[in-house]
């Protein structure tokens, strides 16, 4: 940059200006400095020309209210805009839903550690259902391959990749958002972009999040993910049934997380990770309903809560089985449940 040379001759004429006359030379030298300065600034800001116009918030988006402050009319407009933007981004006609929490329902999730075979089908079903970015990869569920004789996550293997699972010497522990009753992520958010719904699901308003990642630092279960780049999803893989608070496509620069497939479970369906599980290790339901499976498990089984000591009171728990345990009855001969890891 030419600034130093352009500025140096200036020194002599740099006396207070009202006294000196504007000679031609002075005018020229000043112009050169100003021009050099302006082109340097323009050069520095030149990468902005690659900014996708889609990235820039429109006035409506800029003025969009927080989810909790939206009137039904506001919501209608916002949902129409989302449909529009999904159409432009992916060429897909999406339907935006926003099912409200059900009365007297509190969702909890149980995972049977005696049965899980670590096939990671839940991980991939989740990615497909919830429109996570394929590049860079974002996954809500992390399956840990655990050492027998220990339940310490620090000795676990995150990136196990054998041709066949389960490894008879290991057991598997999938971890995802625990939907804590005392969520530290909600507490720390400076703008209330994340909150706990009445049915116990912690959600994010992706249009309100400022991307400070404080919640990610606060989460003891490493359950939150940040969109470091613009999420890439092939159009044909996009799930067009999208919920405002759950699986609608996100933009770069915001947080996202597991919502127990809120758009499904509030309409009587089961989470995608549960539906795909070949071993029946996953149980989901309304804990306030004493007849529910999860209520039964909590009453009768041996239950383990991961990191109970951090006091966040999770709605996700692990449990153990005597009968049906893959350690009692090897599943190898029984079914085609054995799968290469994905």
């Amino acid at each position: 940059m030419s600034d130093p040379h352009a500025q140096r001759p200036e020194d002599k004429s740099a006396v207070p200006s009202d006294q000196t006359t504007w000679t031609r030379r002075r005018f020229l030298s000043r112009s050169v400095v100003a021009l050099a300065g302006m082109s340097a600034v323009a050069g520095a800001m030149s990468p902005l020309r690659h900014l996708d116009p889609q990235d820039l918030p429109s006035l409506d988006e800029f003025l969009q209210k927080h989810y909790k402050e939206m009137t039904p009319q506001d919501k209608e407009q916002v949902f129409a805009r989302i449909t529009q933007s999904v159409q432009t981004r992916f060429g897909v006609d999406a339907t935006v839903s926003d099912p409200p929490p059900l009365e007297d329902v509190e969702f909890v999730y149980g995972l049977n550690l005696s049965r899980c075979i670590g096939c990671r089908r839940c991980v991939h079903a989740c990615v497909e259902e919830n429109n996570q970015s394929r590049a860079p990869e974002i996954q809500y569920i992390r399956v840990l391959e655990m050492e027998k004789g220990s339940i310490n996550v620090e000795s676990s293997e995150h990136h196990y990749d054998p041709p066949l699972v389960p490894n008879p010497d290991k057991y598997y522990m999938p971890v995802q958002c625990h939907q804590c009753a005392k969520p530290p992520c909600v507490k720390v958010c400076p703008v209330e972009a994340t909150w706990q719904e009445p049915d116990g699901i912690t959600v994010i308003d992706y249009d309100w999040c400022i991307g400070c990642r404080y919640c990610e630092a606060a989460c003891p279960y490493w359950a939150r993910r940040f969109n470091f780049a613009e999420p890439q999803i092939p159009s044909e893989e996009l799930n067009p049934e999208v919920g405002y608070l759950s699986n609608r496509p996100r933009n770069k620069g915001v947080m996202e997380k597991c919502t127990f497939c809120l758009h499904r479970v509030r309409q009587g369906r089961l989470p995608a990770c549960l539906e795909v599980c070949p071993t029946g290790s996953r149980k989901f339901g309304n804990v306030r309903d004493p007849a529910s499976e999860v209520a039964y498990i909590l009453r009768h089984k041996r239950v383990y809560v991961l990191k109970e000591d951090v006091g966040t009171v999770p709605r996700f728990f692990y449990y153990f089985d005597e009968r049906g345990s893959r350690y009692r009855e090897p599943m190898v001969e029984k079914s085609g449940a054995q799968e290469g890891t994905g």
Binding site: P57, F62, H66, P190, V191, A193, W208, C209, I210, G211, C212, R213, F226, N227, K252, G253, V254, M255
Partner: peptide
């Protein structure tokens, strides 16, 4: 450090 500095006003 913010992912969405344009939403600064949300504060």
């Amino acid at each position: 450090d913010l992912g969405r500095p344009d939403r600064f006003m949300h504060l």
